[in-house]
Each structure stands twice: as structure tokens, then as C-alpha cells.
């Protein structure tokens, strides 16, 4: 039994994406492995999941979002918040590209920007504003907005790397 070339390409491409998710999760969540600027760290799993959902569409977006979120949750508080968020993000981005948006760099930057901003805003609201912490505006200005910008710096690199991977192992359709 032999695999057709297109199927082989799909398997290799998706295996590479799974490896990328695991490597990114380790890079993001291991202290000292990824540079932090003034205590602000990049959430590189978000642009990765967005880019995967855009290039592989919604089902892959859901599954890779689940993998990325589950790995992230092992370093977080463990209530599956990150898994839920990345599954929704993966599905939404894949559906948007499938129905009303074009798959290009500008939309990737837009979708990643919105996704990271929603994540940081949601995190800030939940853990700071609703928790009644004083100084939440200070945290928004000094931590969350810089983190959003810092994360977006990696969006182009991730997007073009995934485009290159898609060209190296293309689907026939």
C-alpha cells in the first residue's frame, strides 16, 4: 500500500505543524527560553494557531488550537481557559478565511492582532478588573498593551514560515 503524494504532503505538513506547536509551547512557557522585555513576554502560541487556522482551515484550527491550549494550560492554572480560547480562535479564524476573508498577510496580521488583543483584554478583565485589583489600568498600560505589541512582532515570521511550509508540501487542490 503506498500513499499518494498529496496525502504524504498533508501528513508531513501537519506533523511539522504539531511539532511547531509543541516547540512553541516549550519556548513560551519555559523560563529563560524566550526573551522577555521589561517583564513582558510574547504569547507566540496565539499567532501560530491563527496562522495554522488560516492555512489549514477550521477543523485543523480547532485541533491545533486544542493541542496548543492544552499544552499552555499545563503551565497555567489548569482550568482549560487557554484551550477553550485557542479552540474558539482556531475555529473562528478558519471559518472567516473559508467564508468572507482572503488568506494573506494583511488578514493574518488583522486576525492575530484581534485575537491577541481579545486574549489580553479578557485576561485583564477577568484577573484584574473583575478580581477587584487596584492598579488594573496601570497593568493594562505597562503589561498587557506592550505584550500585545510584542506578540504581533512574531506574526509575520510565523505566517511566512507557514506559507513556505505549505508551498514545500502542497495539497493538490
Amino acid at each position: 500500500m503506498t500513499l499518494s503524494l498529496s496525502k504524504k504532503n498533508t501528513i508531513i505538513r501537519r506533523a511539522c505543524l504539531a511539532a511547531a506547536v509543541i516547540i512553541f509551547a516549550v519556548l513560551q512557557n519555559t523560563p529563560g527560553w524566550f526573551p522577555s522585555i521589561a517583564g513582558v513576554r510574547a504569547l507566540i502560541l496565539i499567532p501560530l494557531v491563527t496562522a495554522i487556522a488560516m492555512t489549514e482551515r477550521e477543523k485543523a484550527g480547532i485541533l491545533y488550537g486544542l493541542l496548543a491550549g492544552a499544552l499552555w494550560d499545563t503551565s497555567a492554572r489548569g482550568n482549560s481557559f487557554n484551550a477553550i480560547f485557542l479552540v474558539i480562535a482556531g475555529y473562528a479564524c478558519g471559518m472567516l478565511i473559508n467564508t468572507i476573508m482572503r488568506n494573506n498577510f494583511v488578514t493574518h496580521l488583522l486576525l492575530t492582532g484581534v485575537t491577541v488583543a481579545v486574549y489580553n483584554l479578557g485576561y485583564w478583565l477577568w484577573h484584574y478588573v473583575f478580581a477587584g485589583l487596584s492598579g488594573s489600568v496601570y497593568a493594562l498600560l505597562t503589561s498587557f498593551i506592550p505584550a500585545t505589541i510584542y506578540t504581533l512582532v512574531f506574526a509575520p515570521i510565523i505566517f511566512f514560515a507557514l506559507v513556505k511550509l505549505g508551498r514545500k508540501f502542497p495539497d493538490p487542490d
Binding site: 513560551q28 512557557n29 519555559t30 523560563p31 524566550f34 517583564g39 513576554r41 510574547a42 504569547l43 499552555w72 499545563t74 503551565s75 497555567a76 492554572r77 487557554n82 486574549y119 489580553n120 485576561y123 497593568a139 503589561s143 505584550a147
Partner: peptide
């Protein structure tokens, strides 16, 4: 062995 990149209060695993 790890820390949550989204956490600003230095929590770790």
C-alpha cells in the same frame, strides 16, 4: 519547570 507567559505575577510550575 515552567511559567505561564500570560501571568504577570511570577507564578511558576
Amino acid at each position: 519547570i515552567g511559567s505561564d507567559a500570560a501571568d504577570r505575577f511570577g507564578s511558576f510550575t
